[in-house]
Design a protein around this nucleic acid. Structure first.
Length: 484
DNA sequence: TTTTGAGTTGTTCGA
DNA sequence: GTCGAACAACTCAAA
């Protein structure tokens, strides 16, 4: 029998075996399957961040193990993806390349380039839906436009054709007779060294499909019941923490969607389904607005007078702003590669509104430090925080971080965990130590400006200044009584 | 085409 | 401490 022609399945942000349309389609061809991952040597602002690289290393190691248990091997190559994949197809004579579609502009550009190269060589690129629940190209307003608000989008999505039932994990994956050459994962240097700052992440997360499935199961069996109210409380572990697993595709959004819809409908499960639709909306917006990471969706905000404030930015990044809930969030991010959603809104609002630092600067810090860094979600949410994007709510909605702390971390469990120097402060002043009398501070062992910073910005003045700037930009008029 | 109802997540003030 | 109104009128999407 002649050497069988292999087919290629190209993994990107779908590092899983279960419910993987590209993988299942490749196996269905009944040819030897070459599983491939290509590391992109991407330059520029949105090159993969440090936390993402750490996650990717471990997720690829996990995927390689899973593939080996099915009889296949994971090929690793690095370089320009279209060139690498087309080159490998030529090298091994593959007729088809299967991949799951990703919404990021660089992946779409790579797919277009690859499809052209393959076609020119008489081969075929076969894209599949994998990252999103719905095909972003098919969700349009009645007038044929692109949705700019969440609720109408979500309503339309619920009426559209949803994800098919999850595909089973393949029993075996037939390998080619001759394995192409592969890079060695360790040589890619994705893990941090000198120093190795990944311990906090490793203590919080386990990358890879088995851990993703386990977390999904645990969440859907228990925690989701309290999701409706509990998800807003950063001091309690009542969120799914599935975001990095979803970003890397270790678990598919579709399988979670179906698991939710197999349950009797309750408010908590509906709230979680809504969060999946927010993830969907972010991918949709990035699909239709590829400039989302760099340009405000509302162009008048190009000219907002952002401040250059290296000292303020550094204090924010290190969790040394003197605002406890902000510092707790930024330290959680630095230590664990993740931040509670409620606190993300607070720290983003603080940077953008109180410090008047450009939202893209904040987005880039998140990009480098989050294990769940996702171009669509990160860009959409920072534009939301800055009021430059999808939300047409009034511009004067400015989070007061002290009030947010008192409301959502009333017992101070979150702040005390990540800002231990304030642990002995009484609840009443924990979120505003600058308001405490000297005796109270002394009894708690706190010296403002020494053991913990004094606030780097007066919250009332910062709010007034932001109101003035946004009002000027939105209405083109100076406010009646500018506070700054 | 025009009209109409509604929009993730807030804060402050004054009764 | 709690509650409702004001903030200020904009943009989106559907009818």
């Amino acid at each position: 029998m002649a050497e069988a022609v292999p087919t290629i399945v190209w993994f990107r942000q779908d590092l899983r075996l279960l419910d993987n349309a590209a993988l299942s389609a490749a196996i269905a061809e009944r040819r030897p399957v070459i599983a491939l991952y290509v590391l992109i040597e991407q330059q520029g602002d949105w090159a993969m961040g440090g936390a993402s690289r750490w996650w990717l290393h471990h997720s690829l190691a996990s995927l390689a193990t899973s593939l080996e248990s099915k009889g296949a091997r994971l090929m690793l190559r690095r370089g320009d993806p279209a060139q690498i994949v087309a080159g490998l197809a030529a090298e091994c004579g593959a007729a088809t390349v299967h991949a799951n579609i990703c919404p990021e502009p660089h992946w779409r550009a790579a797919d277009t380039a690859l499809a052209a190269r393959l076609e020119a060589a008489g081969r075929r690129f076969v894209p599949h839906r994998g990252f999103t629940l719905f095909d972003p190209a098919l969700i349009k307003t009645r007038a044929g436009g692109i949705y700019g608000m969440f609720t109408p989008f979500a309503n339309a999505a619920r009426e559209a054709a949803g994800p098919p039932p999850p595909l089973p994990e393949p029993a075996t994956i037939p390998p080619p007779a001759n394995q192409p050459l592969s890079d060695t994962l360790a040589d890619w240097g994705l893990r941090p060294q000198h120093p190795d700052w990944s311990q906090g992440m490793a203590a919080t997360f386990t990358p890879g499909e088995p851990a993703a499935r386990a977390r999904g199961r645990t969440f859907l069996r228990g925690v989701v019941r309290e999701y409706d109210t509990g998800r807003d409380l950063p001091g309690q572990d009542l969120t799914s923490m599935l975001s990095p697993h979803l970003h890397w595709g270790e678990i598919s959004a579709g399988s979670l969607w179906h698991a939710l819809h197999r349950r009797p409908p309750d408010r908590a499960a509906q709230t979680f389904a809504n969060e999946l639709l927010w993830r969907e909306f972010a991918a949709y917006l990035l699909w239709h607005h590829p400039t989302l990471p760099d340009r405000p969706l509302r162009p008048e905000f190009e000219n907002l007078p952002w401040r250059h404030d290296p000292a303020g930015l550094r204090a924010w990044q290190r969790g040394q702003t003197g605002i406890p809930i902000v510092d707790a969030g930024m330290r959680q991010l630095w230590q664990t590669g993740w931040m509670h959603n409620r606190v993300r809104m607070v720290v983003a609002s603080f940077l953008v509104k109180h410090l008047l630092v450009h939202w893209r600067v904040g987005a880039q810090w998140f990009w480098d430090t989050l294990v769940d860094a996702d171009l669509g979600a990160n860009s959409m949410n920072w534009q939301w925080a800055a009021g430059t994007g999808i939300d047409s709510q009034p511009f004067f909605r400015i989070f007061n971080p002290m009030t947010q702390g008192e409301k959502f971390d009333a017992d101070g469990a979150y702040v005390r965990r990540f800002v231990p120097e304030l642990a002995r402060m009484p609840d009443k002043f924990l979120h505003a130590p600058w308001r405490a009398a000297p005796l109270v501070l002394a009894e708690a062992g706190v010296r403002l400006g020494a053991t913990y910073p004094a606030p780097i910005v007066d919250l009332a003045l910062g709010r007034a200044r932001a109101l003035a700037v946004w009002q000027q930009t939105v209405r083109g008029t100076a406010p009646a009584s500018a506070g700054a």
